[in-house]
Simulated scan of single mutants.
Amino acid sequence: MQTAIIFDMDGTLFQTNLILEPALERTFEYLRQNNLWSGATPIEKYREIMGVPLNVVWKSLCPDHSDKIREKSNQYFQAALIEEIRKGNGALYDNVLPTLQSLSESYPLFIASNGETAYLQAIMSAYNLERWIKGCYSIDIIPSKNKSLLVERILKEHNIVSGFVVGDRASDINAAIDNNLIPIAVNFDFAQLEELKKAQHIVEQFPQLIDIVKTYRIQVLEG
């Protein structure tokens, strides 16, 4: 029987807020220069919907644009995000690396993210997360863009029968519940407490995960 821990990326491991504004500003400046947008960049709107699949993001940010323009906007945005990461303008949350190292000594660790593959790989490479992460899965591989199905795929591919999902939005909590895993919420930048009510635990500091996971391991051993 294999137990694993599956993490969200944006707003859970990675401080997306540090690169979000400049990348989004560059994208909407591109749209303005091409007479496809007028007015301010909808940064606050993006913050509200952070964590949903990218096709939903662009329908929300650009409701009056064609799918072709939305796709082009997303491509520009993704390239800007990756450039920001490679410049070193992003960061992991405090104590993410030592916590992952500690957890990886007892559990296989995975990532299930609504981010695109190239973006996720840029983060993985920038912080050498392959040291502790066994697999990084993008919602790209799920046609329905349903995170519960993405987590289900990880479970099947790695013969995982129990474990935890750690994330900051409702899609993470629901993915845990739908797959009979334990939902743990992080109350960081993009978290909305109303969405996290169904989580079994809410943490304010990343290292708290170690004690939470250890408690369940002790219960299993004693049982």
Rank of each mutant, 00 (worst) to 15 (best):
L103T: 03
E83V: 05
K147V: 10
T41N: 08
I85A: 10
T99F: 00
E29S: 11
N74V: 14
L92T: 07
L61M: 09
T215M: 09
P63G: 06
Y119D: 05
I218K: 12
R131I: 08
I82L: 07
G51F: 10
V186A: 02
R153A: 07
T117E: 13
L54C: 00
K145C: 13
F206R: 10
E29C: 04
V161E: 10
I43G: 04
I69P: 02
G11W: 02
V213D: 01
E44V: 05
L61F: 02
I139G: 02
A40C: 10
F110P: 02
I5C: 02
I173F: 04
K68V: 14
A175Q: 09
N187R: 06
D8F: 04
W132D: 05
S148T: 14
Q33R: 15
E222C: 01
P42K: 06
P53Q: 12
A122S: 14
E204K: 09
V161D: 06
I19S: 04
G88R: 14
V186L: 00
A175K: 13
N179L: 09
V203P: 02
Y127G: 04
S104P: 01
R86A: 08
I184W: 04
R47C: 00
C136K: 08
T16E: 07
D178V: 01
A80T: 07
P22N: 10
E116L: 11
L54I: 11
S162L: 00
Y119F: 10
D64L: 10
T27V: 10
K145M: 14
E21Q: 15
P143A: 11
N179I: 12
N35Q: 15
Q15Y: 06
E195V: 05
F14G: 01
T99E: 02
D67K: 08
V166L: 08
F28R: 05
L92N: 07
L92D: 11
L31R: 03
L20P: 06
L81R: 03
P207R: 01
V213K: 00
F28T: 05
Q219A: 12
S73W: 06
E105W: 02
A176I: 07
R169W: 00
I202D: 01
G223N: 11
R32K: 15
R32E: 08
N180T: 09
T27A: 09
E84I: 13
Y46A: 13
N187H: 04
E130P: 00
L129R: 07
V213L: 00
T215F: 03
G135I: 06
D189Y: 08
A23I: 09
Q2I: 12
I85E: 14
E157N: 09
D94H: 09
G135D: 15
L18H: 07
I212C: 04
F190H: 06
E157V: 02
Q208T: 07
F190P: 03
M9S: 12
K197I: 13
Y46W: 06
K87Y: 05
T117A: 11
N35L: 13
G223P: 02
N95T: 04
A191S: 15
L150V: 04
S73P: 09
P98K: 00
K145Q: 14
V165P: 07
R26P: 00
T117I: 15
K68L: 13
C62R: 11
R131D: 13
F7Y: 09
L20A: 10
V186N: 01
N159K: 14
L97I: 15
D94Y: 02
L54W: 04
M9P: 00
G135R: 12
I111W: 03
Q75P: 01
K87W: 03
Q192L: 14
N89M: 10
A126Y: 08
